[in-house]
């Protein structure tokens, strides 16, 4: 119990940092945001804390830059301490650079990630493709996403939704249904593919600043970590802040 408290305090202390813009729960959140305008920037910082077998904290930092109205650049980093959970060695960091192109309802993102994990230490390719839709303040994305490296290829069907609950409050939900690859394992070592679910309750307290609390069974914000289901059942609880400038 004391460990959980310490971890949560650590996470909350990160929130105190003056970071900032539009909520990024995971890489799919971007598909709902409508993109940045030219030269617009945003920074988001978040954490997610898991209990149980994989008792650890994953932290995320994401930077976004509006290259043009249609093209945005993203630099994301996720990480946690490395640890051995039963027969599984996990954790580490992942840094991803991605370029997203939007035209009408089409969304295409391509990028590369540099993981440093027990499983990967070479460049991996990342991608997301799909269509976005908007009605009023609600938005949705349907498509596919994936990551490919020397050792593992993960491909999933992706769906993301945003529903406003009030002027400032909205609910994000996203899901990745695995089509190819194992994105988790049982504690005894049996490889499994599990659907990834993420939820966030976002509070936009100014035009440029958003805070959210989240529940997700995925690890973090990069494409690779977003597609990775935690070990065992249950959700990690987290929070984040985003600032646009």
């Amino acid at each position: 119990m004391s460990n959980i408290t310490v971890r949560h305090l650590l996470g909350l202390s990160l929130l105190a940092l003056p970071m900032a813009s539009f909520a990024q729960l995971n890489h799919l959140s971007e598909t709902l945001n409508g993109g940045l305008t030219e030269k617009e920037k945003k920074v988001s910082l978040s954490f997610r804390s898991f209990d149980g077998n994989e008792a650890s904290i994953y932290g995320d930092l994401a930077l976004a830059y509006g290259w043009s109205r249609d093209i945005n650049l993203y630099l994301r980093a996720s990480g946690s301490e490395r640890k051995t959970v039963g027969a599984i060695r996990t954790g580490g960091t992942d840094v991803e650079l991605q370029m997203a192109w939007r035209k009408a309802n089409l969304y295409v993102a391509l990028g590369a990630a540099l993981p440093s994990t027990p499983a990967q230490d070479r460049v991996a390719g990342t991608w997301t493709i799909g269509v976005t839709g908007q009605e009023g303040k609600s938005s949705a994305f349907f498509g596919a996403t994936g990551v490919t490296s020397d050792d593992v290829t993960l491909v999933g069907a992706a769906v993301a939704l945003r529903t406003p609950l009030s002027e400032q409050l909205s609910l994000d939900a996203s899901s990745i249904f695995m089509i190819r690859g194992e994105n988790t394992a049982g504690i005894g070592g049996n490889l499994e593919d599990q659907t990834v679910l993420s939820f966030a309750l976002r509070y936009q307290f100014s035009e440029k600043q958003t805070f959210w609390v989240s529940a997700s069974n995925a690890l973090g914000g990069t494409t690779g970590f977003s597609m990775s289901h935690r070990i065992g059942a249950g959700f990690g609880l987290g929070a984040g802040i985003e600032v646009k400038f």
């Binding site: 051995t84 027969a87 599984i88 060695r89 996990t90 954790g91 580490g92 992942d94 993981p115 994990t117 027990p118 499983a119 990967q120 991996a124 990551v147 490296s149 050792d151 593992v152 993960l154 690859g181 194992e182 994105n183 988790t184 394992a185 070592g189 490889l191 690890l219 690779g224 970590f225 597609m227 990775s228 289901h229 070990i231």
Partner: peptide, 13 residues
């Protein structure tokens, strides 16, 4: 031998 890689960040012992 190749280790049992899965989940992008994890590897089976």
């Amino acid at each position: 031998g190749l280790p049992g890689v899965f989940r992008y960040d994890a590897v089976l012992v």
